[in-house]
Every structure is written in C-alpha cells, then in structure tokens.
Write a protein that binds this DNA or RNA. Structure first.
Lengths: 199, 199
DNA sequence: TACATAATGTACCGTTCGGTATAATAATTG
DNA sequence: CAATTATTATACCGAACGGTACATTATGTA
C-alpha cells in the first residue's frame, strides 16, 4: 500500500515550521520555550516531538528553511534587475526595508542567533549551522559579484571575495542597527555610503 | 564618623563588576545564570543582591561600565593619531583584532545583547539601555567626523551623521562576522573596502 | 464491523531557574 | 571587652523549563 497507515496528522508540516520560524525569529533559540512553540504551531508537545524531534532539531529545520527562503528571495531580486550595480543596491534597499519594518519578527534570524553563540548557551550543532548559514549567504553574494566581473560590470581589479565579505558584514550591521531602533532613512544612508565600495 | 560602620565587604566592587562583565559578555543576559555570576564573581547570592541588586540591575551596571571603558579606549586610539583618516583606520583595525581574537569573550557585548531584544525575552530597561549604548558609540564617531571636517581632513560635502551611521553599522557587522568564524584577514579586507566611503 | 495504527490531550518527572529567609560570623566603635 | 552593624553561607521557595509516559481518540484497512 502506498497510502499511510493509521490516523494521518491533521496539521501541515511546512506551515507548522513557518509558525516555529516566527517564534524562533522573535525569541531566539534559548528564549523560545516549548510552550511558545506549541502554542504558535497549534499542536501539543508530543505531536511536536513526533514530527520534528526535540527543540534543537526543530531549530535546525527552521534555520534551514529560513536560509532557503532567504536565498530564493535574494536570487529573485538579483534576477529582476539586469544592471549588476543597480541589482545590488535594489537588493540592499529591499533588505533594509524589511529590517526596518517594526512589525515582528525583527532583524535577521541568523544574526540574532549568532549573537547567542557563546559557551554553554547554545548547542554546538546550532552554532555550526549558523556559521554555515552566514557562509551560504556570503557565497550567494560572491557568485553574483563573480558573474558581474565576467560580464564586465564590475572592475576586474576588485576582489570579489572581499566585496562579498564586505556586503555580508553590511547586511549584518544593518540588522543590528535596525534592532537598535534605526529608521529606514538611516539604513538607506548607510547603504548609500557602502555603495562607494563597488567602484 | 566618616568611616563605614560594621563589617566592610571583603571584595572590590569594580573587580566584581569586571567578572560579571565577562560572564554576560560570553553568555548574554538570559543565558548567564546566577550560579555562573556568583561563581565568577567569587561571592554568594545574598552578597550579590546586597551589592548590585537583582540580575537586571547588575546587567545595567555592567553595560554602563562596558560602554565607558569602550569609549575611553576609542578616544585613546583617536588621540594617538593626528591624521583623521589614519586614526579611523587604526581604530577599526584595532577593533577587528579584538573581535577576531578567539579567546573569550568574543564579539561585542552590545551587539550580542541587541540580538536578544525581542518580545518577552529581555526586560524593557535592558533594551532601552542597549539602544542608548549604540547611540553613544555612534555619537562618539560622529564627534570625530565633525572635528575632521572642521580641520579640513574630511570632505565637507560628506554627511557626518551618515558616515557615523555607516561605520557604526560596519563595527556591528564586523562583530557578527567575527562570531561566524571569520579570521582577522577577512575583517581587514572588509575594513579596506569600507574605507572607500571616507573619500 | 472489527482491527490496526498513529496522533492526540493530560498529567507528570527531574532539573534548573531567579530570588529570599534565616542564622552565624567578622569587623569596627565605644 | 562588650555592643553594634553589616556581610556572609546554607538552605530553601515557588515557578518554569525541556522532555516523556500513559491512556484516549480518530482514522485508515480488511
């Protein structure tokens, strides 16, 4: 039989993950309690454990989903604008608008989580996954810049890796600045200053 | 009598605060337990409460001390170099070296704490103090840039406020990048790219 | 209908948390 | 040497935590 045996679960895995994403995004791994999670996801603790494992395992699934969605969004923006420099600026300003939006969740899940990486506070697997998430985001920018250089839209003497690191750092800085209460105008001013690194 | 009555405390307030600073720096406000704090500070819970109040009050004292020490350090670096642009770069590279140092505490206390600002996770007073700490740090840079313009070392058409916001964002980004495992060479590359915003 | 399977709600476990009452101890004043 | 005053250590409190055992209920197959 290809059909599932027994009682099927009456909730959707992905939507439940999205609810969990919101909770972790707002509270972080530590501060998000199982009560918060089960309440937001609309299921009981045993159901949560049966479907996603323990809290750490759930966070890792949520983080992976976040990165995938994020990369897709970035790619869509880059593809919507043929001029490489304008595409980057459009990408940055879109991110700034999202970060400056005061309605939760605020900031960036990865940046928020990275701050909690310390001693015993965060499981090693989570720290590792967060580091990899930053690398994935930076690699996405790197690919974009290499392509721009190949297309002659970015000066060849510029180091694409360094530029990717710079703009990754910029995004993280914008996320922190936004959480500190900076309005969108300030983030846009920062972006304008940063764009001078392009050429 | 000007002398204190009763048994004097047999520990130093400032050194105890420094120990608490290390603990909060590594673990953040939430994850730092009273057991961690009393152990590192070398005093019992009642002594801690008598001297510093509750955990939130202690954190606020620690944060204020951190900001004061930080601003002093920044000022010392700026004063050690007459050329404004070189002073800024020296300042940034010194910060990068500290951030990239793998021996704990890692990152920036303010940036780490800012990430935890969400819903019920962090007391409002702490969020407010963290925001103010970012503003203080940015104001320190702003003063430096205004002075540089007055001395003719920074182009007058540049907006000093925007530049201060940009380099504040850069510092936050460097702190996050460092926690994600970036080596000092990468941070230095980011700084080199960022310095193009100066002129 | 009867059985099998899996998800569900409830109640609970041990641990750790922040914070405090109590009692003993050490140091300064007269 | 007493008396005073504040610090100290121990033990404890209620609450919240992550995680789980158990019995129940709902859905599928035959």
């Amino acid at each position: 039989m290809a059909t599932e045996r027994g009682r099927p679960r009456n909730f959707d895995l992905d939507t439940a993950l999205d609810r969990a994403l919101e909770v972790f995004w707002q509270h972080g791994f530590q501060a998000a309690s199982l009560a918060d999670l089960t309440s937001a996801m609309g299921l009981s603790k045993p159901s949560l454990y049966a479907a996603f494992g323990d809290k750490e395992s759930l966070y890792l699934k949520v983080l992976d989903r976040y990165v995938v969605l994020q990369i897709e969004q970035h790619t869509a923006i880059f593809n919507s604008e043929p001029d490489a420099r304008q595409a980057l600026e459009k990408f940055l300003r879109t991110m700034a608008a999202l970060l400056a939006d005061p309605t939760p969740p605020c900031g960036c899940l990865i940046v928020n989580g990275m701050a909690d990486c310390g001693l015993a506070s965060t499981p090693p697997a989570i720290e590792q996954a967060l580091r990899k998430a930053v690398q994935r985001s930076e690699a996405r920018l790197h690919r974009q810049f290499v392509r721009a250089q190949r297309d002659g839209q970015l000066a060849p003497q510029i180091n694409a890796s360094d530029l990717a690191a710079f703009f990754t750092s910029l995004l993280a800085g914008l996320a922190v600045l936004a959480k500190s209460g900076a309005k969108r105008a300030k983030l846009d001013a920062v972006i304008s200053a940063a764009m001078s690194a392009w050429c």
